[in-house]
Design a binder for these strands. Structure first.
Lengths: 156, 156
DNA sequence: TGACAATAGTCGTTATAACAGATATAGTTG
DNA sequence: CAACTATATCTGTTATAACGACTATTGTCA
């Protein structure tokens, strides 16, 4: 047994388990892909969170959504939807309006300008994702999706 | 063909490709797992980025590392290592010292206190990861790792 | 109805991330 | 060796995220 770099402290730490390796790879891969997405969004002046919210609002259609519902649909939960929407509203990409029936809720809708920005981004983003994952053929992508779903199964 | 919710705008958007679904699931899964990790780190007063850096420094051993090297090893690239280390230094978890041979570089080392904190977290974090992924047996975890590696292949 | 809890969102504050430019030191080359 | 380029880090600034406390409105039930 060669002794090179066997610091006494090191030996005490158990070897990293497979689960830790999964987590590490998840982080690295997500970070790598996300970075390129943000690069693509930068010219439009959107963060990926803002982009995500705009897509949610487009998906919701003309009747709009309440803050809470937006929060529930987001990819990466943000505890402060209010100010996120403030910024989008300041840029004219969404409008807000208090609900008349229940005056607690504020309804948010995407504006035509917001829709235009999204439309201009649709194809570049789809193209990017295709390029990012072009190494993998459909069956592998499907396994990946299935494994990712399973990985977060049994969780609130 | 039923007409319910066929808004004219909707039809124009192409159905989301498989690659988009992969990306969505990556984001969701990473977010879900990371959230619980941060929950576990909170009592120790560390963000996951800080935790990551401490682990890198522990791995580097007593000779320490330069900022740039830390940056290269991080899971999620941070453009401002300086202030991240400032905070860790303020909490007494790392020390910094200008290199004598090359006075441009600043060497950062983890302190005994930093090591103690890490040691207290090692088992809870490993346990969490095991729990998070207990649905999946080793072969699946291995496929997942392989697919994640492939997904970020051919990239800087 | 009137007190109380639940819900929806907002605001103040601090911490951290992102971006751009500045500073100091080291290598390189005519 | 002087000028130039590259490297390593730092600083100023703005934007965003995270955490709590706070307000307004609605629902519930004695």
């Amino acid at each position: 047994m060669t002794a090179r770099r066997l610091h006494q402290k090191r030996r005490q730490r158990p070897a990293p388990g497979l689960e830790d390796v999964v987590f590490l790879n998840l982080m690295r891969t997500t970070d790598a892909l996300l970075r390129e997405v943000e690069e693509t969004l930068k010219p439009a002046g959107l963060s990926h969170t803002q982009y995500n919210v705009l897509r949610i609002l487009r998906g919701a259609g003309p009747q709009g959504l309440a803050c809470r519902e937006i929060g529930e649909r987001m990819l990466t939960r943000d505890p402060d939807i209010t100010r996120l929407l403030d910024r989008l509203e300041a840029h004219g990409l969404v409008t807000r309006q208090r609900e008349r029936t229940d005056r607690r809720v504020v309804n948010t809708r995407i504006t035509p300008q917001g829709l235009r920005i999204l439309e201009k981004l649709d194809e570049p983003i789809a193209e990017l994702h295709r390029r990012q994952l072009r190494h993998l053929r459909a069956p592998r992508l499907q396994s990946l999706v299935r494994l990712l779903e399973q990985a977060r199964e049994g969780r609130p």
